[in-house]
Write a protein that binds this DNA or RNA. Structure first.
Length: 867
RNA sequence: GCCCGGGUGGUGGAAUGGUAGACACCAGGGACUUAAAAUCCCUUGAUCGAAAGGUCGUGCGGGUUCGAGUCCCGCCCCGGGCACCA
């Protein structure tokens, strides 16, 4: 069963045991509900052409250690892997080469699978999923239908991020500093018809439920910031031109209403034209043009320079009737709040800057309670003052603390129908469509109003409360979105001639007329190309398929659920398995997904929870981010820098066990840390030392190993049991670096011992096994262990072995270390003190001194304060 | 600008308020060897000293404490996130 090599020949040992595990299906997980479950999940990879990056095995090794450890602890462990295989790089490759993205994707998956298997991870390969497999995305489409039915999916023509280079739109979350997250290409605003998911309907719960999950604080805070809840009020300002109605603004500072000196509306605000007076028309038009021409990069870069133009119109302050000039300025965004604000320059930095630039009045209405450092020396604060305080110059409200004034002013206006308390979020609805080929097709057909009505009669249960429609600007026709029946899923991608998007906002699917224009049976979802004659039957109507596809995030929103029951054809997962396995107990992946995948998946999960198909409200109860591994030069690994380390190379030169161990020994899992080729030698030597302690020169069992269980010295046993305890504790807390150093201490102790018992060696191999599974299988077998070491129960540590009879006490005089005492357990302070007085190293510091105080911590310290 | 995280030997990093530098790497010395590799042993924070030993030392400056890398206040630097969100 074992190999026959004499030396630690990892090139022979590692493939041997990998084959053994595969042939024995060692890591197949059955749904044995009699055992406690443990579900440990990695963020599944996008199978890129570049192959595995060294960052992948970092996180995967951590979860593999946990998986193997938990199995040894008696858990039924679910540890799956799959492929997040839709995505832009595969499609761009297809555009370049003309080959189907699926074939390139499958090649990449084959390579990834090979690399991952070579790392010896204990995945259950029978549960592998692939988001591009129609058997998988059938259920992605099914979940979309549920969202659609609940009215959480709609179509909107709206300004969206368009990336000319990628020829697609991108979500807010995919755009950084005016550039695409993928590729770093510039993006611009365009008005396009888009599918949008109503994630904002879940904003409050997405925020509130963060308190229930065990996540890194920084990630929770990032999501909080992204959701961006702010409490305030919507207030109505009458317009001087009364026929135009009211101007609605959102403010978080209704308490500063008396300090409003002007109004600002966004350049895209619907009232801009109506409010512009003839004298101001040219200036406003020129300004709007200038703003529209600004790329968002410029709009961000120029954030410091505020600009705006007076419309010529006025609004009336509802509390004091003041006439407030209405300006148009691009520092107010149409996408947030109402696209209009009341400007209070005395108490808002931006308004202050703007007022200063255009010589608008500043009225202070808040005074700090404590006139200390905020003061300008004359009792009033330096403006703008954004801190707390009490109201001044605010008529009846003067003197009120600001928090009270917020409530009272809002309530008073509400009672007059001039406002109400509201909550606003920065979170926008999720732009869910891409003009690409390589994604899940939307299972939706566009039909006429009358055909929709016809279908609605029998399909009411599949339809949203109000129809999703879109008006074709070119023809003036209005189209109705009719979902395919769930039974007709999956809707697969047709073959296309070219993968190149048309560039005008339509995907390559728009060119596949046979697929696009169909006769469809609305009851069954069956279809034939529209070029053929209409089939016989009442349920056949004309339909045009949706040409957009879903973004890459769709498939990763729910894959953790599919692993529970990956082959199920009648449900995305069996409810019994959903109940048993639930959601991952531990989820490990990069922090770069803090607001993308992790927010989207939470949203979908909550929708599924509301549908009653998953039993818990949150998908990822415990989350951990592995840190980035830098190149040897301390810089981010990149091809251009030439500092990339490939797992394949290390496996060939040092073996997988060494690589795994080294990745964990580098430093804390969450830390960013540089790779080092010299440091890896250290862990390699450690494994060789383990080998030599077990195996002699000729491949025989090391003669120092004794069957006699009492062969171990007391110190060796103490070290062993300390190791069992510490390694277990450290694994539970994902502190693998210190677990490994403890194992090094243990093997050093074994090496120094003249004899060691077989049971000690075996226990040591067992605690090493989750980290270095191949060498430990080999040695376990050679030392006569039965079965796979992976099946052996985790060794118990004996607390009695950990108790020392003597303790070291450090003697400090005035806080400085002066001596060490070795005293029996239970030694009193007085005894220790008198020992210190006679100890040669400390006595000299005590002679002739007056002892003022003695601090004694048994087993730690005796601090004597003198004079 | 705002919000996080982090600054410890030549290097990666350890340290429930209780011996700073565990465990490794590198470097130096020694053993084994014809020799080398491998392996094993020793030294290895700085500084003063012949030695015994002393002094200093966890980014900087203060503070709390018998005792601070750890807690508090004020800075500096690095990394990440957000950024006209009213």
């Amino acid at each position: 069963m074992a190999t026959h090599c004499k030396d630690y020949d990892f090139l022979q040992i590692e493939p041997h045991w990998q084959t053994f595990w595969e042939n024995n299906r060692s890591f197949r997980t059955d749904n044995d509900t009699s055992k406690p479950k443990y579900y440990v999940l990695d963020m599944f990879p996008y199978p890129s052409g570049a192959g595995l990056h060294i960052g992948h095995p970092e996180g995967y090794t951590a979860t593999d250690i946990i998986a193997r450890y938990k199995r040894a602890k008696g858990f039924n462990v679910l540890h799956p892997i799959g492929w997040d295989a839709f995505g832009l790089p595969a499609e761009q490759h297809a555009v370049k080469t003309g080959t189907h993205p699926a074939s390139n994707t499958q090649n990449n998956i084959t390579n990834f699978r090979r690399q991952i298997k070579a790392l010896g991870f204990s995945y259950d390969w029978e549960r592998e999923v692939d988001t591009t497999d129609p058997k998988y995305f059938k259920w992605t489409q099914w979940i979309f239908l549920q969202l659609f039915k609940k009215g959480l999916a709609y179509v909107d023509e709206r300004p969206v991020w368009w990336c000319p280079e990628l020829r697609t739109v991108l979500a807010n979350e995919e755009v950084q500093d005016g550039k695409s997250e993928v590729g770093g290409f510039p993006v611009e605003r365009r008005n396009l018809r888009q599918w949008v998911l109503r994630i904002t309907a879940y904003a409050e719960r997405l925020l509130a439920d963060l308190k229930d999950v065990d996540w890194p604080d920084s990630t929770k805070r990032m999501q909080e910031a992204w959701i961006g809840r702010s409490e305030g009020a919507e207030l109505l300002f009458k317009l001087e031109q009364e026929h135009l109605g009211d101007l609605k603004v959102f403010t978080t500072r209704p308490d500063t209403l008396f300090g409003a000196t002007y109004m600002v509306i966004a350049p895209e605000h619907p009232l801009v034209n109506a409010l512009t007076t003839p004298e101001q028309r040219d200036a406003i038009d020129a300004y709007k043009k200038k703003v529209a021409g600004k790329s968002d990069l410029e709009r961000t870069d120029l954030a410091k320079d505020k600009s705006g133009v007076f419309t010529g119109s006025f609004a009336i302050n509802p509390v004091n009737g003041a006439r407030l000039p209405i300006w148009v300025a691009d520092y107010v965004l149409m996408g947030y709040g109402t696209g209009a604000i009341m400007a209070v320059p005395a108490h808002d930095e931006r308004d202050f800057e703007f007022a200063h630039q255009y010589h608008l009045p500043v009225i202070q209405v808040i005074e700090p309670d404590h006139n200390d450092n905020a003061s300008n020396g004359h009792g009033s604060p330096k403006l703008p003052y954004t801190g707390d305080g009490k109201l001044v110059h605010s008529e009846d409200y003067t003197g009120l603390p600001w928090a009270d004034a917020k409530k009272k002013i809002t309530a008073d206006l509400a009672s007059k129908g001039r406002g109400k308390a509201t909550v606003n979020y920065k979170l926008r609805d999720w732009l869910f469509s891409r003009q690409r080929y390589w994604g899940e097709p939307f299972p939706v057909l566009w039909v006429t109003e009358s055909d929709y009505a016809l279908a609605a009669a029998s399909r009411a249960a599949d339809l949203p409360p109000s129809p999703v429609t879109y008006r074709d600007a070119a023809t003036g026709d209005t189209w109705y979105a009719l979902p395919l029946p769930a039974a007709a899923l999956p809707l697969t991608l047709p073959e296309v001639e070219s993968y190149l998007p048309s560039g005008n906002g339509e995907s390559p699917l728009a060119n596949v007329t046979e697929w696009l224009e169909v006769w469809v049976n609305f009851a069954t979802g069956a279809s034939v190309p529209a070029s053929q004659s209409r089939p016989v039957g009442e349920s056949w109507i004309r339909g045009r398929r949706e040409t957009n596809t879903m973004p890459q995030w769709a498939g990763s929103c729910w894959y953790y659920l599919r692993f529970l029951d990956p082959k199920n054809e009648t449900a995305f997962a069996d409810p019994k398995l959903l109940a048993y396995w639930g959601v991952p107990d531990l989820y490990v992946g990069g922090a770069e997904h803090a607001v993308l995948h992790l927010l989207y998946a939470r949203f979908w999960h909550k929708v599924l929870f509301d549908l009653g198909v998953v039993p818990q409200a949150e998908p990822f109860t415990k989350l951990f981010h592995q840190g980035i591994i830098l190149g040897e030069d301390g810089e981010k690994m990149s091809k251009s820098r030439g500092n990339v380390v490939s797992p394949d190379t290390i496996i060939a030169s040092h073996g997988t066990d060494t690589l795994r161990l080294y990745l964990m020994f580098l430093g804390p899992l969450e830390a960013m840390k540089p790779w080092s080729m010299t440091q890896i030698e250290g862990v390699f030597r450690f494994l060789q030392k383990v080998w030599r302690e077990c195996i002699g020169r000729e491949g025989e069992i090391n003669p120092k190993i004794s069957d006699d269980a009492s062969a171990d010295s007391t110190e060796l046993l103490k070290t062993l049991h300390e190791t069992i305890k510490k390694v277990g504790d450290d694994i539970e807390n994902l502190r693998f670096n210190t677990a490994i150093s403890q194992m090094m201490i243990c093997v050093n102790a074994i090496q120094k011992a003249e004899r060691v018992s077989l049971s000690t060696i075996r226990a040591f191999l067992q605690v090493l096994a989750p980290l270095a599974p191949h060498i430990t299988e080999e040695l376990w077998t050679r030392l006569g262990g039965t079965g796979s070491i992976q099946q052996a129960a985790w060794p118990q540590f004996d607390p009695a072995k950990l108790v020392a009879t003597e303790l070291k006490v450090v003697v400090q005089i005035n806080g400085k270390k002066r001596a060490e005492l070795l005293v029996p357990v239970g030694t009193s302070q007085d005894t220790a003190f008198s020992l210190a007085q006679t100890h040669p190293e400390s006595a000299t510091y005590l002679a002739g001194k007056v002892v003022k105080r003695v601090v004694f911590v048994p087993g730690k310290i005796l601090n004597i304060v003198v004079e």
